[in-house]
Amino acid sequence: MNVFSQLPNISNLRREYTKGKLNRKDLPDNPLILFDYWLIEACKAYLPDPTAMILATVDSNGQPYQRTVLLKQYDVKGLVFFTNFGSRKVFHFNKNPNISLHFLWHLFDRQLMILGRIEKLSIEETLKYFRERPRESQISAWVSKQSSYIKSREILEKTFIKMDDKFKNREIPLPNFWGGFRVKVNTMEFWQGGKHRLHDRFLYKLEDNVWEINRLAP
């Protein structure tokens, strides 16, 4: 029996990209300005998870991995997210701090690829964000030994209840195995979909503290 027999002919699934254009004369010297504009537009349009970004890492054997994380802060110093220090991604960071990020905003026919290096946030920076999280999210940081094998979801739920009771009526401390990372950006590639697959692609690359800008063929 062919388990794929009910699938449509996906080779014929396509559409035209007509939501906008990118012109060289309109690009800012600093790509973070354009990133800020695109992200604000995505948030104002109430896109689902507008801050979701694919984080790609490579293990010690050269095997790439990807997962979605949420952008929590950004400024001229870089882009920030938070995770468990025992997670697979952090093991990869320790071997190879070079990473890639990818944003996809379908409604605007936009993609953004970012290359950079990982650096760990200070405890003070992490604690400030941790205090802003909902109480349940603070507890969940204690519950999950991220990327480790578990036998059932029931184990997670029981541990959550246990931790909820342990920290009842008091401030939840910052776990020493959880914190933030900043991506120090050195490359940003903006993609704006265009008609007839003639997309607009612009590559920003940091060279001697100056952003070089080049148009790429689609």
Results as ranks from 00 to 15, higher is better:
residue 113 M to A: 15
residue 132 E to L: 15
residue 218 P to E: 09
residue 59 D to N: 15
residue 28 P to M: 08
residue 170 R to D: 00
residue 92 H to D: 15
residue 146 Q to Y: 06
residue 128 K to A: 11
residue 42 A to K: 12
residue 125 E to V: 01
residue 118 I to V: 14
residue 84 N to Y: 05
residue 150 I to C: 01
residue 20 G to Y: 00
residue 98 N to P: 00
residue 140 S to N: 13
residue 8 P to W: 11
residue 37 Y to L: 11
residue 62 G to Y: 12
residue 148 S to E: 14
residue 179 G to P: 07
residue 168 K to F: 13
residue 11 S to G: 00
residue 129 Y to M: 09
residue 66 Q to M: 03
residue 46 Y to D: 12
residue 190 F to R: 03
residue 187 T to W: 00
residue 78 G to P: 04
residue 20 G to S: 03
residue 37 Y to T: 13
residue 36 D to E: 14
residue 208 D to G: 08
residue 32 L to Q: 09
residue 26 D to V: 01
residue 148 S to R: 10
residue 208 D to F: 10
residue 198 L to S: 01
residue 68 T to G: 02
residue 181 F to K: 02
residue 56 A to Y: 09
residue 41 E to L: 09
residue 93 F to Q: 08
residue 167 F to D: 06
residue 217 A to Q: 15
residue 33 I to F: 09
residue 192 Q to E: 12
residue 217 A to S: 13
residue 208 D to R: 14
residue 151 K to Y: 00
residue 147 S to I: 10
residue 179 G to Y: 03
residue 108 F to A: 12
residue 43 C to D: 06
residue 135 R to V: 13
residue 109 D to V: 04
residue 15 R to W: 01
residue 133 R to K: 13
residue 54 I to E: 10
residue 115 L to S: 15
residue 157 E to L: 14
residue 23 N to W: 00
residue 29 D to N: 09
residue 190 F to D: 03
residue 123 I to Y: 13
residue 168 K to T: 03
residue 15 R to I: 04
residue 39 L to R: 04
residue 212 E to P: 01
residue 17 Y to D: 05
residue 22 L to I: 09
residue 152 S to I: 00
residue 78 G to Y: 05
residue 200 D to F: 01
residue 186 N to Y: 03
residue 59 D to Y: 08
residue 14 R to H: 11
residue 156 L to W: 00
residue 158 K to A: 08
residue 183 V to G: 03
residue 145 K to P: 03
residue 4 F to V: 01
residue 89 K to Y: 05
residue 96 N to W: 09
residue 191 W to T: 01
residue 166 K to L: 15
residue 28 P to H: 08
residue 190 F to E: 00
residue 80 V to N: 01
residue 188 M to R: 04
residue 52 A to Y: 09
residue 65 Y to V: 02
residue 38 W to E: 03
residue 75 D to Q: 03
residue 212 E to Y: 11
residue 128 K to S: 07
residue 210 V to A: 07
residue 169 N to L: 04
residue 186 N to F: 07
residue 39 L to E: 06
residue 155 I to K: 12
residue 216 L to E: 06
residue 213 I to S: 10
residue 100 S to H: 06
residue 64 P to H: 06
residue 49 D to H: 14
residue 38 W to A: 06
residue 212 E to N: 15
residue 175 P to R: 07
residue 138 Q to T: 08
residue 70 L to M: 13
residue 132 E to P: 03
residue 124 E to V: 05
residue 172 I to V: 15
residue 156 L to M: 10
residue 91 F to T: 04
residue 94 N to H: 15
residue 216 L to W: 06
residue 82 F to S: 07
residue 161 I to M: 10
residue 90 V to H: 05
residue 16 E to P: 00
residue 55 L to F: 08
residue 79 L to P: 02
residue 192 Q to S: 02
residue 71 L to W: 02
residue 140 S to H: 13
residue 207 E to A: 06
residue 13 L to N: 04
residue 147 S to R: 09
residue 111 Q to T: 07
residue 196 H to N: 15
residue 62 G to K: 12
residue 176 N to W: 02
residue 212 E to Q: 14
residue 41 E to V: 01
residue 185 V to Y: 00
residue 1 M to S: 14
residue 183 V to D: 02
residue 182 R to A: 01
residue 184 K to F: 01
residue 122 S to P: 00
residue 165 D to G: 07
residue 119 E to G: 08
residue 208 D to V: 11
residue 202 F to R: 09
